[in-house]
Simulated scan of single mutants.
Amino acid sequence: MKSMNVTAVPSKYLMSVNEELQGTVQEVSYKVGNYIHLSRQLVTDRSIDISEAGRETVAGDAILKKCNVYLPAGYDPNDTTVRYNVLYLLHGVGGDQYEWLSSNGKVDGRFIICNILDNLIINGDIDPLIVVFPNGRSAYDWTDSSFNSEGTNMLGFYYFDYELRYDLIPFIESNYKTYADITVTSHEGIIYNRTRRAIAGLSMGGMQVLNLILGGYRHDSTRITGTESPWNNGLDKTVLAPGMIDLFAYVGAFSNAPTSSDGITLGVSLTSCVHNLHLLYTTCGDSDGVANGSYAKSVEGLTDTAGDFVGDYYQVLLENGVHDFNVWNNGAYNFIRLSFGKCEEHEKPYVVRLTLHSF
């Protein structure tokens, strides 16, 4: 386990570094064989039981999706001696693979999140890191960013785990120089690989991290479920996702969206895992009218239920924080340092509840 002081992002970390120390961002395309079809069926090239998926599974052609990838300064695809940890950062309900970049804004002509990453690396907080910005809609209409509870694009958010496991992670780890290698399936290999991957998300992406990685509920339109939405947003829960703790040891949820599962549900799912979660980092603004309730519900009872299956657990409120990148940049800054930083090691897990008083 690792410990460190959780702080607001230092103002200098929002600034750009010298050009030769700047990482680069590239948009890349990859094939996806696991996604929601027009018919609301799950197209898959794997043997996934209907009871797990909560819907009929069918064969179908792969679709082509895009993601953005941050590569640290000095990344050389031909250098076989260097490997990198990988962080996956998920976007919100109206965003896409550019939200963490363009919607977050720029300082000194560079994306703020890239400035934070550059500064973390050059200041020695972390080793050079690869960051993947996916589009979280695993659906044939993944480019549709509208909010429509009956849309297949919305349903795709709740099935991103299959794409992540079977399409995106294999693509990243076969095309970039990562420590992790998903093709290594030995017990020792899984234990090693999961400590080389981290995943976090904002808002809807925070919900995905909790529900799909820890093991919460998938959701669908109430027109399909025939039930009522407890959030009055046209969505209700269907089946539990199996979770992906075998792939990720570090998980971060920033201002997680209303359809996030409650802490007891998530804790129970964690107790069924072979591996324990090394780090769970949750954060929200204390004035966030969108996510305050879902944040509180998802943390309540989780540690009591999960017990030793959760290592360090941070619950961080931002004073006067709302549903925006002031909160999410602070979340990313601290989560990355706790996941991959050069922090002090400690034997017993921490449960840390605190309020940050400034940005």
Score class of each variant (00 low, 15 high):
M4D: 11
V17Y: 00
Q22F: 06
K31R: 07
I36R: 01
H37E: 15
D45Y: 06
A53M: 09
K65G: 10
Y70D: 02
L71F: 05
N78S: 11
N78D: 14
N78Y: 04
V82T: 14
V86Y: 06
G95T: 01
N104P: 06
D108K: 03
G109K: 00
L117N: 14
D118K: 04
I121L: 00
I126Q: 08
L129P: 03
V132Q: 10
A139D: 08
D141Q: 01
N153G: 04
D161I: 11
D161N: 12
R165F: 04
P170T: 05
F171L: 00
N175L: 03
K177H: 14
T183N: 14
S186D: 14
I191C: 04
R196F: 06
R196M: 08
A198C: 07
S203T: 11
M204C: 07
I213P: 08
T238R: 08
M244I: 03
M244F: 05
D246P: 08
D246H: 10
G252W: 02
F254M: 10
S255P: 09
N256P: 14
D262V: 13
L270G: 12
H278Y: 13
H278E: 05
T282R: 04
G285V: 10
S287C: 13
S287Q: 12
G289N: 07
G293E: 13
Y295M: 14
A296P: 04
E300R: 09
T303W: 09
G307W: 00
D308C: 03
D308S: 15
D308N: 10
F309R: 13
V316Q: 13
L317N: 14
H323T: 07
F335R: 01
I336T: 08
I336K: 03
V352W: 02
R353F: 05
L354S: 14
